[in-house]
Amino acid sequence: MTAAVLGQDTRAVGRGRPGVRWTLTAGSSLGLGIGMVWFSLLVLIPLAAIVATAGGEGWHGYLDALTNPQSWAAIKLTVGQSLLVTGINVVMGTTIAWVLVRDRFAGKRLLDLVIDIPFAMPTIVAGLVLLGLYGPQSPLGINVSNTRTSVTLALAFVTLPFIVRTVQPVLAELDADVEEAAASLGARRLTVLRRIVLPAIVPAIAAGAALSFARAISEYGSLVLISGSLPYHTEVVSVRVLGFIEGGDRTSAAALATIMLAVALTVIVALDVLQRRVARRG
């Protein structure tokens, strides 16, 4: 990277010297070493253990996981609900971010604070909180517990902050001049929004959507109390994995876990590519 940063660019930029990276010294090498040992023990080796356990029986483990009808139902439900919720967040998250940045009203700071609550709240409590309003004793008379709607609701709750928090700063730093220039050139409000504002925030929306999808697909805690985890109906992959673990079937658990990791990574990479493409065009 140093080569790229300090290469031909130095001659063009010249005065604004790029920060010079330091090569490792004895002290920092030791730090890196300790850090890597800890990181390996905590993350890398356990991840390897999952992949190794899943692949212990060759491709059978994966095939079994996919062909087991209950697991397949869980995968379909999880991926489908995660896509649905991510779609909701794209619309609502962007709307909320817009309101937080461009609107002025009393209580805006409170709204800003409330957005973060789902991120900081214990997931099991999130489920309990939703049960209070949308459960059997709902003051609204709406009871969604043990239905697929409860899955959508819980996932929408825990993923609320992601798109709001990625779009908000980009919207705030958007150059007002550009919009004014567009308006002075005769563009109408909707045209400015569509042609100027939207392209500028699409990368942020994509980044937030990736986070939101990854979180939704791996959600567990908030669903425990509200979804009922009914097989073929409201059972998500995490619950299915836990079922395998509790039943002592570690190979199936690991295989299913690996598949979900792969799906999450695929979506993250795909949205990253989209984000780069938009950024380059813009």
Binding site: A3, L6, G7, T10, R11
Partner: peptide, 13 residues
């Protein structure tokens, strides 16, 4: 300063 050479990648500084 004697015989100093410095490169950054392929760029000869």
């Amino acid at each position: 300063i004697s015989d100093v050479n410095k490169r950054f990648g392929d760029f000869v500084a």
